[in-house]
Design a protein around this nucleic acid. Structure first.
Lengths: 218, 218
DNA sequence: AAATAAATTTAGATAAGTCTAAAAATAGGT
DNA sequence: ACCTATTTTTAGACTTATCTAAATTTATTT
């Protein structure tokens, strides 16, 4: 079994690989993990010895098949627990991340399977992210950022890029939640803000907001 | 916040204090924690600095009020999670201990409270042990060991002293479970075994068994 | 009360994960 | 191609929790 720290590194590498297919740099990992580059190098060596990552000095890291499988298992647990907290224990979607960061490291395959079953095999967590199934498969939705929409186009809100409490509470306050339709009424080119229509209300949002909201078109 | 290891020591001291009111010895703790006496001394010093225990060299330890409160919180979480695993996730009572050992260290007061509410504020875990409430109060049942009963006496099974898988599975196999009435038909003085009546079946059990089964009389 | 046994503590070592500071390698600009 | 800036790695140190082996304290026995 792997330590909490090892699992967290694997998860971080997994997420960064989407952006850096050629290999995740030490500095990128250090920023993601909120630690120093030298610590990252140390851990990468350890993960490499355990054959969880493929690593050549100065060339960045990639996950091995085992590393990827392990990372996906951790992500599966994280998202199942988030779903549990919101659907069964009345948590708001902005409160669950830190607790799920702890729960994702609990080691018991049976627990994960039974939790999944108990929850009715949910497909997405409260932030719209897909939950991997027991085999590690999960849909990579054809989502796009709201900011990519043009004037008069519309989409369904399906997820958030930033899942910080601050952002999620902003969305709550403005009644923006997953599943709602958003139509772009106007786009202001000089600051990137847009006027949107959501549930018959008009709302002006900054580019920072539209850049962190995923939508699905059609 | 305290480390997993610190919490485990506090829990162990709490349990041992029932037996050693004068103070828990280093060796007793070492055995309970399955570690070396020197490691125990190291940890006790640390707990003492943090004012979680009262410690004088060579005199054993006792929990401080803070230490006791912390230990009870961990035990509360352990037992709530055990109840959750059995009642919601279809675990058998012999499978839950190791997973609860992990879950008991999750830090979130809200999680504990909401879990308690979700489960309907259960009073006892699957092994019959009382679950402390949010204020740390819990009933210390007036239970006794089955082995203390005399011939022709009877009681209701309310808990187990040993909660190892092996013992619990033995009980399952022989259809002994919490809430059932047990009557002593015969006691064999030379080996301490007894013949009991449970659900109209007669069963001979060794002293090891009757020494690990709690019953309530009347 | 002295001698021995048992329990406990101390001293020093180890492993995991992190850090700072310095060295080495790579990348970029001219 | 060279010089500089950036990135990455190495070296050495620190903390937590553990260990072994030795020293010390307490308890027991005669």
């Amino acid at each position: 079994m792997f330590s909490f720290s090892e699992e967290n590194y694997l998860k971080a590498i997994f997420h960064l690989e989407r952006k850096y297919q050629a290999g995740v740099s030490t500095n990128a990992l250090a920023e993601e993990m909120d630690t120093k580059a030298s610590s990252v190098t140390d851990m990468i060596k350890k993960l490499s010895e355990k054959e969880l990552v493929i690593y050549k000095k100065y060339q960045g890291v990639k996950l091995s098949e085992l590393g990827k499988k392990t990372a996906i298992e951790v992500i599966r647990k994280h998202r199942l627990w988030e779903y549990f907290l919101v659907e069964k224990l009345n948590f708001n979607w902005d409160e669950v991340h830190d607790i799920a960061e702890q729960l994702e490291h609990i080691k018991s395959e049976k627990l994960t399977q039974e939790l999944d079953k108990f929850l009715g095999f949910p497909k997405r967590d409260p932030h719209g992210d897909p939950i991997p199934d027991a085999e590690g498969n999960f849909s990579v939705a054809n989502k796009m950022l709201l900011s990519e929409l043009g004037k008069a186009e519309k989409g369904i809100c399906v997820g958030v890029k930033d899942s910080s409490s601050e952002f999620l509470r902003f969305l709550d306050k403005n009644n923006i939640s997953l599943g709602k339709e958003i139509k772009v009424l106007e786009k202001e080119s000089f600051d990137g803000s847009m006027l949107i229509l959501i549930e018959e209300r008009e709302l002006r949002i900054s580019q920072l907001i539209s850049n962190n909201l995923y939508i699905k078109i059609q």
